[in-house]
Design a protein around this nucleic acid. Structure first.
Length: 199
DNA sequence: TGTGTGATAGTCT
DNA sequence: GACTATCACACAT
């Protein structure tokens, strides 16, 4: 596949907003990962918003401090990657500096470098390639070494580009997955009828 | 230095 | 649907 269009990278200020708005608008955007000048990536189809201090599911809950939650206090557009249950989770920080919040990327639809992503996962089934947060990190070879990468920079190994605008009628929302104490609002956003959305 | 804790994935039934 | 392997981090000694 040849890419004739000139891609437009998403500016930093996009991320300096409320996490639920960023989570909603991140759907349909293109997530790109550069490895050894090779390009992998796909369209974001599922996200979840996390509110730092006020969110029982957040690692910054009640002002917890450490390497992980410390990054949540950074400015929007910074990558936060951490390990849970033996899997890496990829988040993008939102809101202005000093306001801990973020968006978890839960699933993408693989579009670019599918062959290499399958290799990274050691599988052959595209349907199982990136339909979960831990899976997509492994497919894209995202690890803790990429923490604090700026996803709005043309030089970064991880970037997010404009791709499609998704109409509201194609967007579903629900409570978050795997969270013990959830907030009342539905903070999980996904594209309806997309087969790469996790169950 | 040690222990408890999950925002999971994979496998088996 | 239920069970568990697995591991960096946070917090307590």
């Amino acid at each position: 596949m040849k890419m004739e269009i000139k891609w437009q990278i998403i500016p930093q200020k996009f991320y300096n907003r409320d996490p639920s708005i960023v989570a909603r608008e991140l759907l349909g955007k293109l997530l790109i990962r550069i490895i050894n000048s090779r390009m992998l990536g796909g369209m974001i189809v599922e996200t979840e918003a996390y509110y730092g201090v006020d969110d029982p599911a957040s690692r910054a809950y009640k002002g917890r401090k450490g390497k992980i939650s410390g990054i949540m206090y950074e400015e929007g557009g910074v990558a936060l990657i951490y390990m849970v249950h033996g899997n890496w989770l990829f988040n993008i920080i939102t809101g202005p500096k000093g306001h801990p919040s973020g968006v978890l990327i839960r699933a993408i639809e693989p579009l670019i470098g599918i062959k290499y992503m399958l290799e990274n996962r050691g599988i052959k089934d595209i349907n199982q390639l990136t339909n979960g947060p831990g899976k997509l990190c492994k497919a894209l070879n995202i690890t803790g070494a990429l923490n604090r990468v700026k996803v709005y920079s043309e030089r970064s190994p991880i970037r997010v580009y404009m791709y499609r605008d998704i109409n509201d009628k194609y967007i579903g929302r629900s409570h978050r997955i795997g969270v013990r104490e959830d907030l009342p609002e539905p903070l999980r956003f996904f594209i309806k009828n997309n087969r790469f959305v996790s169950r």
